[in-house]
Design a protein around this nucleic acid. Structure first.
Length: 739
DNA sequence: CACCCTCGAGTTCA
DNA sequence: CTCGAGGGTG
């Protein structure tokens, strides 16, 4: 259940502090502006605002539109730019809850006050900018921002450019005065496009759609601006949308419920949300909250929560409001998917191919359910494009809810101490000079493929990985252990010669617990993953050691790996551009490594899926002595470099046969009775190609539980979907099943 | 010359 | 799982 992300206890403290700060700040502000008195020094006031900003940076769900941080400084009312508008009726903000338990408590209290069950109107809380439209006798007279709830800014001129907002209401008999409240927002797609354009133009990106909407609406047309600038501004406004969700300043509307209000607004030609629902129970409302918690991305705009309102308008009257917020509505806030945190530094990691990849070292922060401390920055160009400086507060999100991604800096929070990242010139692991592998390449590489510890470690880990030899017990941890200084391996050449005796002495320093790095805790000792105490007769007699289960397993798995498929062995050589697909094509065509080695560039490039570049990469690979040594030593250890019974190069007709011949199939989600690997093997065995991404060339997508974006993509492209239960049937009958 | 695909990489959790 | 980069294909 995505809705009730477990909230750490610090959250409650942060929330309490932000509430008391908000109250204090608003009091001081009122005293200052309203009564011309000062209850605190400017410095004290500033300190409070800063503290609140810091809390909101760490807990963005606490930063609502009505927070004093949103209405002071930066985004606040600036009378020099926009005329103030006093709302005919105050624009309230909403109280927030952050868990379903809290929501249930609130709702139960409302039902007690109401004396019985209540109908709940549930709607999506859009991450946009609250706007008040004032209609007099059916004609739009002003559009204003929320401001502090009492006074906002006149942004009529800009709002008129937002599509879908009528200047005149449809129908007849409109009240002399009515205020229509709603949210102006950027649809996610338009927001992404806008940020892409900003990046391209060398301008700063917007941290979120709300800032973008606010920035766009608060642009000022000026005679000083060029026609081009004015045009740009218009285009931006035309990408905005509005949804309305309330009325004000109309004492006796001719409807009895909030949902009735929406129908009325819709009949007037105003844009209302298509996704609201009236639920007859608290559980129903919770189900709505949970549903959209899991489908936050299936609507066109960002959702930061759900608003639940009592549907009956008479009840609104009865329940009334506190000084800030009505008692008949509440905002349920989802845990944020975008947060801000400090970029402590940018470091370089060296991959198995020697590629130097910069990654962000972040102040640890919780995003979408896990604590993130690092995020990849891909390469120098990406660092530059994102415009992040070391020391910046950056916006972070989880792309696809999994991979942390730095979106960009919060420029407003810079204090001048930030510094630019400079790409190092030396490999952090072996000190070699980094250089592009060929002219004009963006990526820098460590040239020391043979001895750079990072590269050797990476290659050995790769050999054990699922896409290569799939060796149980050979993952990241054992790759580190095996390649430590004075460890048994200095390249992968000796991998299959490893014996239990080689493994026994391996010692790995115990890693410091998270958070204790650099605290001078040096005496953590070592771990001995491959040996265990067998016996010790008496306390003072010598200890006898024997191999641990991990050691036995690794040796046994290595022995098994020697006879795995030729294509897997090929993949494990880390030849550039030779992954599972190219390796399969090469293996079936040539049948043995010897045949591949003997082949000319033309012969290699003639294989389907192999072109001149891959061919060249293979030929060059075999020209390196220590590469050949890997092949020879593995062969001497019993590695089978050929497909038994293969008739020889080019002899195998590659035209696939079988029920799925000629199809391209994608498998996603979990399929009962198959691992992912097995399912893909089965697809291949049936004569189809198995690929990882859905495109218009895909023939069918096999969808099991847990499928994500790929299923959506398939539906979007109209590609046939095979449910997991019918997978076996599909393998036998092929396309016949699809008709 | 598009467009699609594969490769390579980073990250985090169960 | 997602992205960028760059190779391969129609």
């Amino acid at each position: 259940m995505a809705a009730a992300d477990p909230i750490p206890t610090e959250f409650d403290a942060a929330r309490a502090e932000s509430e008391s700060l908000t109250e204090r700040i608003l009091q001081l502000r009122e005293a200052y502006y309203g009564h011309d008195t000062t209850l605190a020094s400017d410095a004290e006031y500033d300190a409070m605002v800063h503290r609140l900003q810091a809390i909101e940076a760490a807990w963005p769900q606490l930063a609502g539109q009505d927070s004093p941080t949103q209405t002071v400084g930066g985004a606040g009312i600036d009378s020099t730019l926009f005329d103030p508008v006093v709302h005919a009726e105050r624009m309230y903000s909403l109280d927030n809850v952050f868990s379903t338990e809290e929501f249930a408590e609130w709702a139960a209290k409302v039902e007690r006050d109401a004396g019985g069950p209540v109908a709940w109107l549930c709607e999506l809380k859009i991450d946009g900018l609250a706007i008040n439209l004032r209609y007099e006798h059916g004609a739009l007279t002003t559009a204003a921002t929320r401001g502090d709830g009492v006074t906002g800014e006149d942004v009529t001129e800009n709002v008129l450019r937002v599509p879908g907002i009528p200047r005149r209401l449809d129908g007849e008999g409109h009240p002399a005065l009515v205020e229509v409240r709603g949210e102006i927002y950027f649809p996610v797609a338009a927001f992404n496009a806008l940020n892409a354009e900003q990046t391209e133009a060398g301008e700063r990106v917007f941290a979120n759609p709300r800032n973008a909407a606010s920035g766009s609406l608060r642009q000022k047309a000026a005679a000083s601006k060029s026609a081009k600038e004015t045009d740009l501004m218009r285009r931006r406004l035309e990408r905005l949308r509005m949804l309305v969700h309330g009325i004000g300043a109309w004492p006796d509307p001719p409807v009895a419920s909030q949902s009735g209000v929406y129908e009325l607004l819709r009949s007037w030609g105003l844009p209302t949300s298509p996704s609201y629902r009236v639920e007859s129970s608290i559980d129903g409302a919770i189900a709505f909250i949970e549903h959209y918690g899991e489908h936050r991305h299936s609507v066109e705009h960002e959702i930061d929560g759900v608003v639940v309102k009592v549907d009956d308008l008479a009840m609104h009257e009865r329940l009334g409001a506190t000084s800030r917020a009505p008692r008949w509505a509440i905002a349920y806030k989802y845990p944020p998917e975008q947060v801000q945190t400090r970029l402590r530094g940018i470091e370089i990691s060296i991959g198995r191919t020697g590629r130097a990849t910069p990654f962000a070292v972040l102040e640890p922060i919780r995003v979408a359910g896990s604590v993130v401390r690092r995020a990849t920055l891909h390469n120098q160009d990406v660092v530059r494009e994102k415009g992040v400086l070391i020391g910046d507060i950056v916006v972070l999100r989880k792309a696809g809810d999994v991979i942390p991604e730095v979106l960009g800096p919060v420029v407003d929070l810079r204090d001048g101490s930030e510094r630019a990242f400079e790409m190092p010139t030396q490999c952090p692991e072996c000190g070699s000079a980094l250089a592009p592998s060929k002219e004009g390449d963006v990526d820098l590489r460590c040239p020391n493929a043979r001895a750079c510890p990072a590269q050797v470690r990476g290659r050995i880990e790769h050999i054990g990985s699922r896409g290569a030899l799939d060796i149980e017990g050979l993952g990241e941890v054992s790759a580190i252990a095996l390649t430590r200084p004075h460890g048994p391996l200095d390249t992968e050449a000796g991998l299959f010669d490893l014996t239990i005796d080689d493994l026994l002495p391996i010692e790995v320093p115990r890693t410091a617990p998270v958070g204790a790095e650099g605290l001078g805790v040096e005496s953590l000792g070592v771990e001995t993953p491959y040996r265990k105490v067998v016996k010790q007769a008496r306390k003072d007699s010598p200890v006898e050691y024997g191999p641990s289960a991990a050691a036995e397993e690794l040796v046994a798995e290595l022995a098994k790996a020697k006879e795995k498929d030729l294509w897997r062995l090929l993949v494990s050589l880390s030849i550039r551009h030779v992954g599972p697909v190219a390796a399969r094509a090469l293996a079936t065509h040539f049948g043995s490594l010897e045949a591949i080695r003997a082949a000319s560039a033309e012969a290699l490039a003639a294989v389907d899926g192999v072109g001149p570049v891959i061919a060249e990469a293979i030929i060059e690979w075999f020209l390196v002595d220590w590469h050949v040594e890997i092949v020879d030593r593995w062969a001497a250890s019993g590695v089978r470099w050929s497909i038994p019974g293969h008739p020889g190069p080019g002899a195998v007709d590659e035209a696939p046969t079988g029920p799925l011949a000629g199809l391209t199939v994608v498998v996603t989600g979990s399929i009962e009775g198959f691992t992912r690997e097995e399912a893909e093997e089965a697809v291949l065995a049936a004569g189809a190609k198995s690929t990882g991404s859905v495109s218009k060339r895909t023939s069918a997508v096999v969808v099991g539980p847990g499928a994500g974006s790929k299923e959506a993509k398939a539906i979007e492209l109209g590609i046939p979907i095979v449910p997991a239960e019918r997978f076996a049937e599909f393998l036998e009958r092929g396309t016949a099943l699809l008709e």
